[in-house]
Amino acid sequence: MFRNLSITLQIVMLVALYIFLYMPILYIVYVSMQTTAIWPFPPDFTGEHYVNLWHATDYHTGFRNSLIIGIGTGMISSVIATMAVIGILKYRVKGSKLIAGLFLSPLFIAHILIGISSLMFNKTLLGLPGNLFSAIIANATYATAFAFLVLLAQLARYDWRLDEAAMVFGATPRRTFREITLPLVWPAIFGAFIVSFLLAFNNLEISFYNLGATPTLPTLAWGSLRHGISQELYALAALINAAVFSFLGLLYILIRSGVIRMDFKD
């Protein structure tokens, strides 16, 4: 009796949490398709805001810049995080805990501090102006922590004896990586890329301080939100949510198939 009560309570909390997380997202998708944003009931569907968004040229520039930041950050973060996770899990030498701590440290630093410190460091000490490149570098610091976490969780299941076997048969480390490790772990690497790409693509605080006047989608959204209701912004939010969910769906499928292939350790 008491046990059932406790499980019921847990299920209620779970459902309540999903409603709390998804109601705002579903509602904004709904509002983006309505003629009015204020109490749009009964529904009056329109695609007008999406057409306006399509024709808004500043959003095109913002999209392109966000894409550059996302891809740049995703590549840097997934490459250095993959190398580090393999190094830590495969060789397990003294000091790996400290290095793992360094890679995870950005999780414990507020974004605004990463933003302002790299702004001032670049401008005052290096004399560099804010641009897409410095935004990529600054985003890559904390995106690496997430990439590292994703890879650590996935690669912890990898059986390194496979690599040893290849080496015993005379494969060089490089060839072992290319022909044994990479084909087995690439879904995890791809997952790390997607997560770091999305984080940097949608980041406001770090990009904002490092970009000067260069617009990205989040900085445009920020500007638009300051001017009150803009249903184009809701259309944008709906599209980005749709993109994030498709990416994560793809990732889920890949990780599932990847895990199945990596799971023969047990």
Partner: peptide, 28 residues
Amino acid sequence: NNRLFFWVLTGPGTAFLLLFLILPLMSI
């Protein structure tokens, strides 16, 4: 060899984070 491979693999990320995260934080 293990130590060498470890540092070859973790070195680039470590340098990146020290240079672009820790150093700027120190600078503020």
